[in-house]
Each structure stands twice: as C-alpha cells, then as structure tokens.
Simulated scan of single mutants.
Amino acid sequence: MSKLRLGLVGIGMMGRNHARVLNSIDDIELVSVADPAGDQHGTAGDAVVVATVSEMIAQGIEAAVVAIPTTFHLQAGLELADAGIHTMIEKPLATDSAESERLVDVFENAGLTNAVGHIERFNPALRALRTRLENGDLGDIYQVATRRQGPFPHRSFDVGVVKDLATHDIDLTAWVIQSPYAVVSAHTAHKSGREHEDLISITAMMIDGTVASHLVNWLSPLKERVTVVTGEKGAFIADTLHGDLTFHENGVVATEWEQVRSFRGVTEGNSTRFAIPKPEPLLVQHRNFRDAILGRSNDIVTMREGLATVAVADACITSAREGRAVQIAEGKA
C-alpha cells in the first residue's frame, strides 16, 4: 500500500514534535517541510525542506499539517485548500472567528478533510473520562472546573493566553460533557509586560445547565493541567500532564463523628485511580487524521468545531474588555 504523502508547515518548537511523530508512522511519508528559517534542529528527516507553502505543495503532497504562529494560519490554510490538500491546522484555528469562518468555508466547500490540533481530545485521561460520563458513571453532571497554568512557554507571541491555552479548556469541556457554551463571563490581567493578556478567569454556563470555570495563566512556576468534573455520584479528576484519571465517589457509609459530619455536604467514599492505556496524544491525533483522509473513521476535531472554540474565546476576551457577560452566538459553540 502506498504511503500518504504529507507536508509540514513550520518546524519550530511544535513543528519539531509533529515531524518526530509523523516520521514514526509507517504509512505516512513526510515528503516536505516549509519553513523560511530552514530545519535548524535537523528534525525533518528525509523530507525536502523548502521556504514556502507553494514550494511544499509542488513536492506532490496529499495532506498537510500547519504548525506556524496563529497570525499566519489563514494565509497558509487558504493556499492549501486552493491546492486541494487535506489539512490539519494547529489550535487555535485562526486569530478570530471571522478568519476561522473563512477557513471552514473554503475547506468544506472543497470537500477536503479538515482538522484542528486540539490535542487534549486525544489525551488518554480525557478520552476515558468522556467514556465514563457517557456510561452514566457520574450521573447528572453539575460542574466542570479546569486549571491550566505554568510559566511563559517562549513560543507564542502573536496571541494571548486565551487563544493559546484557554482554547484547550474551552474545547475539552464542551467535548467531554457533550454540551456547547451558552454564556461566558471573564476577567483578564496583563502582568508580564507583553501586549496580550497572560491570565484569565472564566465562568460559564453550558447549554445543558452545567456550570464551568477555567483558571488559566502563564505566570505560575507550577505547571498544572487539571480537569475536575463534579456530579451526582462524586467527582472525576483528569490530570492531563500525566494521563491519569481518578474517581472520588460519594460515600454510602454515614459519618458518625458529628463535628466532622456537620462540615460535609456529602460523605467521602472510595477513591479509584484507573489503570488506562496511555498512547502519546500527538500520535493518536495524527493516526486519526490519516484515517479520516482515508475514509476509515472520523475521530478528529473538525475546523467547524475549531471555529466554535475560537468564538467562545472571542466572547471571553469581549467579556473581560467590556465587563459584562457575553452570550454565545447560536451555531458558533
């Protein structure tokens, strides 16, 4: 069977990870890499390194991954769609909803497989969590709370922490509980002297009534990636840094110590950390993109879904700027 001929736009910090994984998949051939700075770290393997997207397309690629700063996503995406190239673009899909909608339109109208690199959907902890929620292991879902914080990554200067990091939490929350956002209220801060915000606190209501909150920053020496889903039967905690999923269930044994019992709404039950397979999320993401192109399955994050996430991120920025809650436009989330 012939290999899927693939191109990579950008071989910076994230692009190097893409190149490593793509070169490890047997039925994918990384044919060409486009980066005006060249392959400075020698990670392109046997791929032909060129300066532009058009030169990369000329190498006879069938599909492409775009891993360049968000500001350039629209230009690269339009060029690839015009050439009939199936494309996955790193998250966020584009700088704002208007640019994202243009990309959705051109790829859907061309009938091309299109995807966004929302890698958290391929994290083993979150995939196991979604399955357990679907099975009713938590009963009614009450709240989703996420924390995503750490030091500045020295890779993203064209967007702030909302588009760079909070889009992970926005996307994974709607996906895990399978309900879009209804309204958001947010506050941001600028503490590190950069143009864009480096801290945000978001409170949201989902369409199904679930309350969500996201704490995101580039200011903490502690790196944390945690999702807590609380519901009728207890709480799930997904640690996506380590791919761990834990369930703290509500207890069925009454607390006899009156002084302790008076401070508890529910009693403590058993805690279980699940043993789950832990494949590398980026590897799963690329295999699924390949399978979608070949018609084997459709377990990808489409550009239309990526548009919904950018729309929520835009609403969060508007909320923080204008000091008000913002309704999410119907069909955008």
Rank of each mutant, 00 (worst) to 15 (best):
Thr146Gly: 06
Thr146Trp: 02
Thr146Met: 06
Arg147Cys: 15
Arg147Phe: 07
Arg147Val: 15
Arg148Met: 13
Arg148Gln: 03
Arg148Pro: 06
Gln149Asn: 02
Gln149Tyr: 04
Gln149Leu: 05
Gln149Val: 12
Gln149Glu: 02
Gln149Gly: 01
Gly150Arg: 02
Gly150Ala: 03
Gly150Met: 09
Gly150Phe: 00
Pro151Lys: 12
Pro151Cys: 05
Pro151Arg: 15
Pro151Ser: 10
Pro151Met: 05
Phe152Ile: 10
Phe152Trp: 03
Phe152Val: 05
Phe152Ser: 09
Phe152Glu: 08
Phe152His: 09
Pro153His: 10
His154Gly: 08
His154Glu: 10
His154Leu: 10
Arg155Cys: 13
Arg155Asn: 13
Ser156Trp: 06
Ser156Thr: 10
Ser156Ala: 14
Ser156Leu: 05
Ser156Val: 04
Phe157Leu: 13
Asp158Asn: 13
Asp158Gln: 12
Asp158Ile: 12
Asp158Tyr: 02
Val159Ser: 03
Val159Pro: 03
Val159Leu: 11
Gly160Trp: 00
Gly160Lys: 01
Gly160Asp: 04
Gly160Tyr: 01
Val161Thr: 12
Val161Tyr: 09
Val161Phe: 04
Val162Met: 03
Val162Ala: 08
Val162Phe: 07
Lys163Ile: 14
Lys163Cys: 11
Lys163Ala: 11
Lys163Glu: 02
Asp164Tyr: 08
Leu165Ser: 15
Leu165Arg: 14
Ala166Gly: 11
Ala166Met: 09
Thr167Val: 10
Thr167Cys: 07
Thr167Glu: 01
Thr167Ala: 10
Thr167Ser: 04
His168Cys: 00
His168Leu: 03
His168Glu: 02
His168Asn: 10
His168Ser: 01
Asp169Gly: 12
Asp169Arg: 13
Asp169Ser: 13
Asp169Cys: 07
Ile170Met: 02
Ile170Arg: 02
Ile170Thr: 04
Ile170Gly: 14
Thr173Trp: 15
Ala174Trp: 08
Ala174Thr: 03
Ala174Asn: 01
Trp175His: 02
Trp175Asn: 03
Val176Thr: 04
Val176Glu: 01
Ile177Thr: 05
Ile177Tyr: 00
Ile177His: 06
Ile177Glu: 08
Gln178Trp: 04
Gln178Pro: 08
Ser179Gln: 07
Ser179Val: 04
Ser179Leu: 04
Pro180Ala: 05
Pro180His: 12
Pro180Trp: 11
Pro180Asp: 11
Pro180Ser: 15
Pro180Thr: 06
Tyr181His: 13
Tyr181Leu: 10
Ala182Ser: 15
Ala182Gln: 05
Ala182Thr: 14
Val183Glu: 03
Val183Arg: 15
Val183Trp: 09
Val184Thr: 00
Val184Ala: 06
Val184Ile: 00
Ser185Gln: 03
Ala186His: 06
His187Arg: 11
His187Glu: 13
His187Phe: 08
Thr188Glu: 11
Ala189Ser: 13
Ala189Cys: 12
Ala189Gln: 11
Ala189Ile: 12
His190Asn: 15
His190Lys: 09
His190Met: 08
His190Cys: 07
Lys191Leu: 12
Lys191Glu: 09
Lys191His: 11
Lys191Gly: 15
Lys191Arg: 03
